[in-house]
Amino acid sequence: MSGYKRPKKIYRLVFADPEMEGLEVRARSTSMGDYQLIMRLMMKLRQNPEVVEEDLDTIDDMLGQFAKVLVSWNLEVDTEVNGRTVTQPVPATKDGLLDQDIDFVMAIIDAWTDAVGGVDPELGKDSTSGGSFPEVTIPMELLSTSPGN
């Protein structure tokens, strides 16, 4: 009997930001080790709002890691070919990620980290968070003593 490897779960990311409306990204889950590495690189980049030279290595590492989980997207770009504008798909690879604005890529990675490890903010909103249930008195009536009634 041949072996079976359980495939990683694939998440379909959609975006609430009107500027990213229509973008669909599919990305798979990853190991805790790689997830933490991407989170650390994201936090490192967020420490300085301005991108400085030393951030370039961090960006390169982060996009390299994220490219491993990026399955596909519907991102397209207009390019000039022989004086004509041609719409072409952007490859879902590290090179494709490197061609994008860093803010755009970070928004995608944010959506991915939320999808993989986050919880819907609405979940548990009305929950008592494990607190004890309020005690109530259940009204009871005496049972009839006659088995025939």
Binding site: M32, V116, V119, S132
Partner: peptide, 25 residues
């Protein structure tokens, strides 16, 4: 580190079900 990162979702859901310190009796 080798475990799937989706366990974080379960951890977060479990945390939602835990009483917060202010709510503890």
């Amino acid at each position: 580190e080798r475990e799937d990162a989706s366990i974080l979702r379960y951890v977060n859901i479990a945390r939602l079900g835990m009483p917060q310190p202010a709510e503890m009796e």
